[in-house]
Nucleic acid binder design. Structure first.
Length: 475
DNA sequence: TTTTGAGTTGTTCGA
DNA sequence: GTCGAACAACTCAAA
């Protein structure tokens, strides 16, 4: 029986695992391999929070493989060098992997595919991460979509024919014993322990992902449309990091929802969740077709926009949740402490940074990249560009979030603010989202909290409107 | 080629 | 407190 290397990257699961399935179906003995090569992702090598998650996800994967009789072989160094060494050591005849879609990983993978094929090795790649691959969805003109609604109309048609996901194999053959690094040797875990709080919220790995999906289906999906915007409730799926690392696939999510008998109104809520998966697809496709957008504005009109030079003190106040705007500080502290932030709040903190402070979105994207456990280049890029108004959306330039209004609407009782900003916990609801409006109560009940926001919300809104308006006239 | 309808997520003001 | 209008025009995608 010949061996096949299964090169695992961000597909850290055993169910619905096309690369492993392909190896088995073609009669090979699969050798599951992880190669640590962060430098190959260029400027967007995984950040610290992402590394902390990966550490645990790899351990979970190795554990799961061992339960089935296999094991994870771990290496570090240049991917091609490691793959060639592994092929020589195991006499493998084939290499299989599941595709990645970022500019740097695509370039690397296609170079490796070419090199190994010229070595005479069978190489094949598969789709494990997308409902639709980027080259399969295009407009009547053959161009990529830049507007979500027509994109999703088109992509939804593909969904009708989505094949059901495969189950994990009941057992796996034991691969040849090859030299393997302990996962500790990858130094993904911080010795400082800043991620200690994360794991009260998250369980990396395939079992944790499945449990999260099951809980979402049991408890929240039938109210998703209403509750997904409420950071004070557990209204979202919480699957973003699991999806990023491929511990679960969007196909598995869609299929799990199809299996359930919902009432028509519940079905509408479930469909809304699938539509959010559609946004994940859309982001991947946009970055695939417009690879420069991880660094540059998708909308070229913003090339000459008057962004402000960041004041290091203000940027740091934003990062650390000391802006004096409760909903913003709650979000930034949720991010720091748990490695994640509710999507509604991501938009609010992004609006403050890009509109009120008028800092370029890349400053926010860089911070999120390092601190989010779900940091994903396509989603992070498109999310920030959407917020800044430079992305794929006919966003009216005057759409500037008022963090007080947003807080009152989506965290009506201040539960979310009090959870993450405990020094505000004694404030009455009436001023929980705008404590500066009652300075004496603020001073008495929350003496440690900033007296006023780092930026005047009304003035900065006016200034941002003027700047966006001026930039339109200039072009 | 030209035309036409439409576009995730908002805020403020005044009736 | 609730509601509609104004904010202004542009690009996209399909007919």
């Amino acid at each position: 029986m010949g061996c096949a290397i299964v090169w695992l990257r961000r597909d850290l699961r055993l169910a619905d695992q096309p690369a492993i399935s392909a190896a088995i179906e073609r009669g090979y003995l699969p050798i599951p391999v992880y190669i640590h090569a962060p430098a190959e992702e260029g400027a967007w090598r995984p950040g610290a929070a992402s590394g902390a998650w990966l550490d645990r996800s790899l351990r979970a994967l190795d554990h799961d493989l061992r339960e089935l009789g296999s094991r994870l072989t771990v290496r570090k160094g240049a991917s091609l060098v490691c793959l060639r060494a592994l092929i020589a050591e195991s006499a493998a005849e084939a290499v299989f992997w599941n595709r990645l879609y970022e500019p740097a990983t695509r370039a690397r993978d296609s170079a490796i595919k070419q090199a190994l094929r010229s070595d005479g090795v069978l190489v094949e790649s598969f789709n494990a991460a997308q409902l639709c691959e980027p080259w399969t969805v295009q407009t009547g003109q053959g161009t990529p979509y830049k507007v979500f609604t027509p994109f999703w109309r088109n992509a939804s048609a593909h969904l009708e024919m989505l094949a059901p996901p495969t189950a994990a194999p009941p057992t796996l053959p034991t691969p040849p014993l090859l030299a393997s690094l302990p996962i500790d040797a990858l130094k993904l875990r911080s010795p400082l322990g800043w991620d200690g709080e994360f794991w009260a919220h998250w369980t990396p790995g395939e079992a944790g992902a499945r449990a999260r999906l099951d809980r979402f289906i049991d408890e929240a999906v039938d109210r998703y449309h209403d509750d997904r915007n409420r950071p004070d409730l557990a209204g979202t799926s919480g699957l973003s990091a699991h999806l990023h690392f491929g511990e679960i696939s969007p196909r598995q999510c869609v299929h799990a929802l199809r299996e359930i008998e919902f009432s028509p109104s519940q079905r509408a809520h479930a469909d809304h969740f699938v539509r959010e998966l559609g946004w994940r697809e859309f982001s991947t496709h946009l970055l695939y077709h417009f690879p420069h957008t991880a660094e540059a504005d998708l909308n070229p009109k913003f090339g000459s926009f008057g962004w402000a030079e960041p004041d290091p003190d203000l940027l740091s106040a934003w990062q650390q949740g000391r802006t004096g705007v409760p909903i913003v500080d709650a979000g930034m502290r949720e991010l720091w402490q748990s490695g994640w932030m509710h999507n509604r709040v991501r938009m609010i903190v992004a609006s403050l940074l890009t509109k009120n402070l008028r800092y370029h979105w890349r400053h926010g994207a860089a911070w999120f990249w390092d601190t989010l456990v779900d940091a994903d280049l396509a989603n992070n890029t498109q999310g920030w560009q959407w917020s800044a108004g430079t992305g794929a959306d006919a966003a009216p330039y005057f759409r500037i979030f008022n963090p007080v209004t947003q807080g009152e609407r989506f965290d009506p009782d201040g539960v979310y603010v009090r959870r993450w900003v405990p020094e505000l916990s004694a404030l009455p609801n009436a001023i929980i989202h705008s404590p500066w409006s009652d300075p004496t109560t603020l001073a008495r009940l929350a003496p440690a909290y900033p007296r006023r926001p780092i930026v005047d919300l009304r003035e900065s809104r006016e200034a941002a409107l003027a700047a966006y308006s001026a930039s339109r006239e200039k072009v």
